[in-house]
Simulated scan of single mutants.
Amino acid sequence: MSEFLVIGGSRYFGRHLITLLRDAGHAVTVLNRGSTAPPPGVAHLAADRDDEHALRAALGARGFDAVVDQVCYTPHQAEVARRVFAGGRTGRYVMTSTMEVYDPATFAAPRAQAPAGGMAEGALDPSRPLPAAAGGAAARYAGDKRRAEAVFLREPALPYVSVRSAHVLGGGAQDFTGRLAHYVERVGAGLPVDVHGAPYGTSFIHHLEIARFLAWAAEGTFTGPVNAASHGPLSVTGLTGAVGERLGRAPRHRVVADGGQASPFSFDRAYALDNGRAVRLGFPFGHTGDWLPGAIDEIRPPR
């Protein structure tokens, strides 16, 4: 039996990750600020993970076979985790990262086209500085995730995995982002969806699939960054088409002016994910077209 620590992750797909690890026979401990209780059969520690002293006090002398950090958003949080978990406390550290680290808008020379097959892990050097012009909440989020990844890449004493997740969908009311609900509501009401004139495809993953992926990554032996995305990228018009087909209504689109605010998942630049590394390592991804109809049904109004 392995000892696993999950930092954060008490809601949405994180809760499913915890139950997967527990049901696989692992001893699982959840660490958060104490606001959310873990599932039955899972130990609980309360601490502010930003506070190194409090984190060390909560952990005591405990060690873990793997740590899955669901809430490492900044380089400061990464530095705290690196200092606490390096040096033998854990055999493996898995950070939940994001595909947003590949966003060309945060590179010094943005590119309109991603490589054929999508962005592979080697396309990004997380330590590369962000351009001074990159601003806004999305760019700050991507930049902080990249700098957090760079902290662990500089620490050879800590076996490290960065799971660069595609956009997560599914789960009905559990999906607190409301992004898929945005499309279901607008298409269902016959309202236009704001899109770019030539939107690019992006990558998605089902909430249960990303939970399975994180559990698989925690149990594995590989290290380094790895992309997690279902097969079958979709543009925003492909997504609205799937919603419209499920609701029996043709979607309406309204093109935004250059620089205008489009709907979630409408992108004027390309950075869909290449999931080839994970496939070669043995993870069996599903296809977006297989699970998306069910995800739409979970939030569509009753007929």
Rank of each mutant, 00 (worst) to 15 (best):
A61M: 07
A46K: 07
F283V: 00
R249T: 15
L158G: 04
G294F: 10
A132K: 09
A138Q: 11
A108G: 11
L21N: 00
Q77F: 04
C72F: 01
R111Q: 06
V42P: 02
R164F: 13
L130I: 04
S263I: 00
Y102F: 13
F13A: 08
D65K: 03
H26R: 06
G88N: 10
A150K: 09
D194Y: 14
G259K: 08
S235W: 03
R22M: 02
D65V: 02
D268G: 15
V84R: 03
L273G: 03
C72E: 14
R252V: 13
D290Q: 15
L31H: 12
S127M: 04
N32R: 12
P302I: 00
C72G: 12
A229V: 10
G172R: 12
S266G: 06
G224C: 11
G282Q: 01
D194M: 14
A139W: 09
E3F: 03
T90K: 01
A150L: 06
A148F: 07
W291A: 11
G241Y: 03
A61T: 13
F204T: 10
Y73H: 15
A78R: 05
L158A: 10
A166N: 12
T19D: 12
R280W: 00
A295V: 14
T36W: 06
D290E: 14
A137M: 13
V236K: 13
Y12V: 03
A270V: 00
